[in-house]
Design a binder for these strands. Sequence first.
RNA 1: GGAGGGAUGGCCGAGCGGACGAAGGCGAUAGUCUUGAAAACUAUUGUAUGUAUUCCAUACCGUGGGUUCGAAUCCCACUCCCUCCGCCA
Length: 416
Amino acid sequence: MLDPLLLKNDLDSLKDNLKRRNLDVDLEQLIELDESRRKLRFEAEKLRADQKSLGKDIANAEPKEKDALLEKASQISENVKKLFDEVEEKDKVFYDLWVKIPNLISSTSPDGKTDEDNAEIKQVGDIKNIDNPKDHLEIAEKLGLIDVQKASEVSGSRFSYLFGDLVKIEFNLVSWALDILSSKGFTPTVPPVLVRENALYGTGFFPDDAEQVYEIPNDDLYLVGTSEVPLAALHSDEILDIENLPIRYAGFSTCFRREAGTYGKDTTGIFRVHQFDKVEMFSFCNPEKSEEEHEFILSIEEELLQALEIPYRVVDVCAGDLGASAAKKYDIEAWIPSQNTYREVTSCSNTTSFQARRLNIRAKSDGETNILHTLNGTAIAVGRILIALIENNQTEDGKVEFSDAVAEIIGVKILG
RNA sequence: GGAGGGAUGGCCGAGCGGACGAAGGCGAUAGUCUUGAAAACUAUUGUAUGUAUUCCAUACCGUGGGUUCGAAUCCCACUCCCUCCGCCA
């Protein structure tokens, strides 16, 4: 959520932002609603002040004056109630519209409408020459490492069984990543994956992306699609000391996504599944340093991919392709030989004050209390890293062979 | 799952219908004293909003409703925590 004061103080940047995002919003209406709710609240508070002082008079009044005062007071009381009801109603109308306004985009994000307009920043790593590359499923199925057939019978489409060395690789990857992150100031964290509605609103997944979230209606809980949600909510309603920032967490969790609206997209193997494991970085940050922190998070993502010898490119996501909460976002796409293209394996966003305001997380410095900034980024999305590892290191005879350096990390030299 | 007890400011803790935004203590900050420190004493000590801008008003005593002219205080629901019993990785 943005600061409603923008309507009063910085209308131009708001207008500019909506234009860059290619959105049409009736700002005039919002300004009117904002003004009228403020005005009404002011009136209601004035009357409330009258009521309170009259209340004190009643307590001190002579018995014979009391009846008259009481009658007057009960009238004011009724009006106060009515006025505050109206104020609440107006606030609700205003905020229902206001929360839908997306975050202000960084001036450094490229213009554009779709992912095709994203700006490629660089390509890193050598792409191996592989004749007739096989896709990860074909390779792993033959080796008995993945079974999606059986998984679909047990759980439906977009689920998988991982076996044997892939499981070994997963746990080695996770533990390796957590070690590196830990050395960079991220506290390793296993967060809850079932959360209340509030955490999803606070992080901006609700109301916009609610259809992507699994729901447990009996208990009013939701399965998170990323540990970003419980990590962000970890400090909700807190005032942190700015001296202690940044506060960084590395969350490991299983992630659940309904993938509604993706029928027919990425149907092969484990690229797009309802359930996968991920190590996620999250940072609570001094607003003045969030751009720096964003670059830092990106650099860690690159470091990890480089160590795994996965060829990738970095993309600066354009205005039109940014989610509601991001001011700026970098995606890293790994080279996927079977698709002859780069595909997203990590993503890091600076959500500036957008999530922090909704979650009511502030920072205190020299007596001043301000909203802080939050950032998130993928460290290891296990499924997609496995795909990149398998496909980029496949051999002609249908096996997978890793370099000594990579084998050192993942604990496996050859799949086959 | 059953039976009880509880939730008040940074922390502890009093208040159980009217002068309570909340006693008292601890902690923190500043000052006095001191060569310096400690001790002692004095003062300050939350958050947010506003047509207020060193003043004032309003809201906040777990959350949401209700009763009342008036609620931290009474009533209802919910959430969380603690103790005991049962079950359990």
